[in-house]
Design a protein around this nucleic acid. Structure first.
Lengths: 195, 195
DNA sequence: TGAAATAACGGAGAACTCTCCGCTTAGTCA
DNA sequence: TGACTAAGCGGAGAGTTCTCCGTTATTTCA
């Protein structure tokens, strides 16, 4: 997953970084900012932007790469400190919270689920989920036939929920439903969700 | 929900019908057919098409309105013939099947979940779900706190699954997970899903 | 029936996405 | 260090989406 960043000619790499910098600001200010305006602001042609990020989704994923990596890193750390099921619950809460912060951009990420050019960023996320699920299966906390990709699909849904009070309640209900659907017993207090 | 069809001037209504006719064919042939090409084929200006259907989603929902209505009508008929939970399961299977047939268009429908101008078509679907869920709650088959809109969000997800063999397996797994999440006991044979 | 009122039309045009391909330049090797 | 060779650039342009608003048609009602 670093292949896209290494083996790049110096100028290409500089352009890539510059585009990401500009895009981070532009998208934060307005999630619908046009790609051509981002290209112009970064001082590159549209072709250059599209070569590096073939779609809006790819660019967004690039921009939030850091946050996604952090989420991936979090998984083993939680597993080390908590029983599997609890670790998994906490991780999902964090994932939901991340989506809540990025609402308006989240649907783009979600739409990207099945695109190949996204798999590179998406893959590590799947691995993190799988790792946690395997731990939970090992401890008998969830059904063994539940699939990591299935689950990530469901979790991606959480990112499409508006970040208001009603949305937070819905997130809580859906997470509860999903965990129950995976066969988890009601061990966690439903109010233990950190804000 | 008929307000959009009544109170229309004669020419407007004729245009609306013609657009739907043309769009049905054009979208069946190519789900990415441009809206301007559809407008041209229907012999109306772009403005007219957009006034009737403010977005691609609205047009698609209009085109599949018949099928959606059929799905809505199906709910009470199933409830009359089967125990609540079984009726609900059968209905969800039909919903999944519908999505499978319309793959490529389904994501558009899914994306429209929170748009107001879609609520008219979306509303009856929610009502159908609520009706079945209430029956299931009445018979104690599912948890009382599960929400109809939550569930429809989850079911909408099924429409985004590719209609191949792997996709069908995933659909089955997800439906099983969702029903388990709602608190349903494993009553239905997992192979009872009609193709 | 003949205006007046207003619902609806339709296409020009602004803004955008994405591709194509001739040109430029970084890396390489004798 | 001077060319050679791809990798990379960038902008023109084709195709879209969606809006705006002057024009046209349908109702209504006197």
């Amino acid at each position: 997953m670093t292949a896209e960043e290494e083996n790049l000619r110096a100028d290409a790499r500089a352009n890539r970084d510059r585009i990401l910098d500009v895009a981070r600001e532009a998208l934060a200010a307005d999630p619908t900012a046009s790609l051509s305006s981002i290209a112009k602001a970064a001082g590159v042609g549209a072709g250059t932007l599209y070569r590096h990020f073939p779609s809006r989704e790819a660019l967004v994923l690039g921009v939030y790469r850091t946050e996604i990596d952090a989420l991936v890193d979090l998984a083993p750390r939680l597993l080390a400190k908590h029983p599997p099921l609890e670790a998994f619950r906490l991780w999902c809460d964090r994932l939901a919270k991340f989506g809540r912060m990025k609402y308006g951009i989240a649907d783009i990420v979600h739409a990207a689920t099945s695109e190949q050019n996204i798999q590179e960023t998406y893959g590590p996320l799947i691995n993190a989920v799988r790792e946690m699920m395997d731990a939970c299966k090992g401890s008998g906390d969830i059904h063994p036939e539940v699939d990591a990709e299935d689950l990530l699909m469901l979790l991606g849904l959480l990112w499409r929920i508006p970040p208001n009070a009603a949305g937070q309640a819905r997130t809580k209900r859906l997470l509860a439903l999903i965990f129950r659907g995976m066969g988890a017993k009601n061990t966690a207090a439903p109010d233990a969700v950190p804000s």
